[in-house]
């Protein structure tokens, strides 16, 4: 019980120290430079307090439920014994030849599926993505749906993380993937609707914050520790980079698809 209380307290202190510099900057500039009263100042301060309480609760909950579970599962799924047990052929071969189990990249299929699903589901719950989606929906006058954007981003993160896991397993250098990704982004930029481009670029940075980063980092480090020949220090990183690159592509693709569909419909109604 004491341990729980001290944990709650230390989380609140961390959150407060996270919010205080921001509050100081905002209110400092408001009073020293803008020199005008803040509209609805009581409500705004109450909002800050809600954010503070909300974030503290959120982080404590993550610390108690999601992170230990996520790390445990990442460890279990990347455990060579588990992977071998899921693959009877590997097992049988090892028993026949009495050799050490040699795993190829296909044997890690559950890891990729887990990476995909955990990337998808954590991104849906990412608070900063919800914030940006609300804003984008408001600014676009409803043309960009809150859920459409969130699902497009989540799919991007999911694909990115599973590809990133594959990279750790096979041990390719990260920059080939990232540079190839950049090339795709540049090509897509030429063809995507102009309105979506800034939002698509933003969604790369937005996806990776409180929920996704710790879980994904645990998966990457776990994988790099257990796959033979990988060093956690060099290969364990990079999943976050994948998770912030792929949403850019998926959001642009989402916009291109919806534009294409709208055009098709226009054509149809024009013919009719």
């Amino acid at each position: 019980m004491m341990e729980m209380l001290s944990q709650i307290l230390s989380t609140i202190i961390t959150t407060v120290s996270d919010v205080v510099p921001i509050a100081v900057i905002i209110f400092g500039f408001q009073f020293a430079v803008i020199r005008k009263p803040i509209p609805n100042v009581g409500k705004v301060i109450a909002g800050f307090v809600w954010v503070l309480i909300g974030l503290s609760f959120f982080l404590i909950g993550l610390e108690w439920a999601l992170f230990p579970l996520g790390k445990l599962m990442a460890g279990q799924l990347t455990d060579p014994a588990f992977i071998a047990s899921m693959n009877d052929s590997v097992n049988a071969a090892a028993q026949v030849t009495k050799e050490a189990i040699v795993l190829s990249w296909q044997d890690y299929s559950w890891v990729y599926i887990f990476a995909f699903l955990i990337g998808l589901s954590t991104t849906i719950a990412e608070p900063s993505l919800i914030a940006v989606a609300i804003k984008a929906n408001e600014v676009s006058g409803g043309a960009i749906g809150v859920w459409g954007l969130r699902i497009a981003v989540a799919l991007g993160v999911a694909i990115g993380i599973s590809l990133g896991c594959y990279r750790i397993v096979v041990g390719d250098p990260i920059h080939y993937y990232i540079i190839a990704g950049y090339v795709v982004v540049v090509i897509q930029t030429m063809f995507a609707p102009k309105l979506i481009i800034p939002l698509a670029y933003d969604s790369g940075g937005v996806t990776t914050s409180t929920v996704t980063v710790p879980l994904v980092a645990a998966l990457g480090l776990g994988l790099a520790e257990t796959v033979p020949g990988r060093s956690p220090l060099i290969d364990g990183f990079g999943l976050i980079a994948f998770a912030s690159l792929f949403p850019i592509m998926s959001v642009m693709a989402y916009a291109q698809l919806s534009e294409w569909q709208a055009k098709k419909q226009m054509k149809k109604s024009g013919e009719a």
Binding site: K43, G47, G54, P127
Partner: peptide, 9 residues
Amino acid sequence: FFIHGLEQG
């Protein structure tokens, strides 16, 4: 709480 504070503050 976070989303509420976001919209209000």
